[in-house]
Write a protein that binds this DNA or RNA. Structure first.
Lengths: 190, 190
DNA sequence: CGAGTGGGAGAACGGTCGTTCTCCGCCTGT
DNA sequence: ACAGGCGGAGAACGACCGTTCTCCCACTCG
C-alpha cells in the first residue's frame, strides 16, 4: 500500500467516523481500526489530529463542489441549473447515513476553539454562495437572490439533518422557485 | 444559596461554556469554576453531565420560545407578527457572543451518539415549526409556507453563525416577505 | 544466506475527562 | 461548650485521549 492509498483510507475512515460521532467523539485508535493503517503511519501522513480534520474537510469540500457542479451541468435551462442544487440536496438527504452538513457540524463543535476549522468552513460556505451567485447571474438575478437561495439550502441541510426526510429539499426547492420567478418577473416584466 | 439558586448558576455557567466551546470541549471542573458551585453539589443537582446538558437545552428552549413569542406579540398586523421572528433573529445575531443555534450545534456534536439530546433538538425544532404554522394560519397561509419560512430561519441561523453579521437576518426577512406575499396574492386574489 | 531496515502491533506516557471520595471547617442544637 | 453532621475544596480514581516509543517480524540487497 503506497502513501496515496494509505492517505485515502485514513481520510475515508476518519470522515465516516467524524461525521457519525463528531470530531471529539472519535479517537485516533478508532481511525486506525477502521482504516487498517497503523498509528505510526497515520502520524507520518498527518502530523496531528487537526491536520487529519483539515484533510477530511477538504475532501468533503471537493466532493460537495463536484456534486453541486455536476447537478448544475446536468440541467437544461439556466433556471433549472440554478434549482438543480436542491435536487442534489434531495438525493443527498435520502442517503441513510445522512447527518447534516459536515461543515456546519464541525463549526458548531470546534469552530469556537479551532480557528483553522472555522476558516475552512467559512471559505467553503463562501465558495457555495459564489457558485450560486454565478448561476443567478446567468438569469440576470441579483446578489441578494443568491444569498436568499443559499439561505434556503443551508436551512434545508440542518432541517433535514434533524427532522430527516428528503421532502425538506422539495420544500426548499419550491420556495426557491417562488423567489427566482418573482425576481425574474420584476426585472424582466414580459 | 438555596438549591434553586445553585441550579440556576450551574445551568447558566454550563450554557455559556457549552455554547462557546462545545459540549465535549468543557469539563465539569470548568462548570464548577464559572458557577462557583462545588462539584459535589453539582452532582447532587444533576446526576450526570448528560442531565446537565438536558437542563441547559431546556433553558435555551424556554428562552427561545419566549423571545419568539414576545417578538410576535409586539408586532401589529398578522403579517408583521409572522415576519417578526426575523427581527428577533437579527437582534440575536448581533449579540457579540452569538455562535449559532445551540440546538443545531448540540445535534451536530452529540446528536449521533446521544438519543436524549437528539430527541430534545427534534422537539424544539418541531415546536418552532408549529409556532410559525400558527402565525401562518392567521393570514390563511398553507403549512408548506410555514415549512418554507422555518427553513429560512434555520438557514439564517447557521449562515449568521459562520459568516457573521445581522445582515443575514434581513436577507432572510426579505425572502420571507416574497414568499408570504406571493402566497397571499395566490389564495386571496383581491 | 545473513545483516540491515522499514513498517506493523500495540504498550507506554502525560494529560484530561466524568465521577466519587476524603478531609476539614463551620454551623446547629442543647 | 461541645457533639454531630452538612457542605466546600479539591485529591483520587479509572477510563480514555492524542501522541510517541519499543519491540519484532518480514523483506531487501549483497
Amino acid at each position: 500500500m503506497d502513501d496515496d492509498e494509505a492517505r485515502r483510507r485514513v481520510v475515508d475512515a476518519a470522515d465516516a467516523l467524524f461525521y457519525a460521532r463528531g470530531i471529539r467523539g472519535v479517537g485516533m485508535d478508532a481511525v486506525r481500526s477502521r482504516s487498517g493503517v497503523s498509528l505510526k503511519r497515520i502520524y507520518a501522513l498527518f502530523p496531528s489530529k487537526d491536520d487529519l480534520v483539515v484533510a477530511v474537510l477538504r475532501g468533503r469540500s471537493a466532493l460537495w463542489n463536484e456534486g453541486v457542479a455536476g447537478a448544475a451541468a446536468a440541467a437544461g435551462t439556466p433556471r433549472e441549473r440554478l434549482l438543480a442544487v436542491f435536487d442534489f440536496l434531495e438525493r443527498w438527504f435520502c442517503e441513510d447515513d445522512f447527518r447534516g452538513c459536515a461543515f456546519i457540524n464541525a463549526f458548531g463543535e470546534v469552530g469556537g476553539t479551532s480557528p483553522v476549522v472555522a476558516d475552512l468552513v467559512r471559505s467553503q460556505k463562501a465558495d457555495f454562495v459564489e457558485h450560486v451567485a454565478a448561476l443567478v447571474d446567468e438569469i440576470g438575478g441579483s446578489r441578494e437572490l443568491a444569498a436568499q437561495l443559499a439561505l434556503l439550502a443551508e436551512g434545508a441541510q440542518t432541517t433535514a439533518a434533524i427532522t430527516g426526510g428528503g421532502e425538506t429539499a422539495r420544500v426548499a426547492r419550491r420556495a426557491a422557485e417562488v423567489l427566482v420567478d418573482t425576481e425574474l418577473a420584476a426585472t424582466v416584466p414580459a
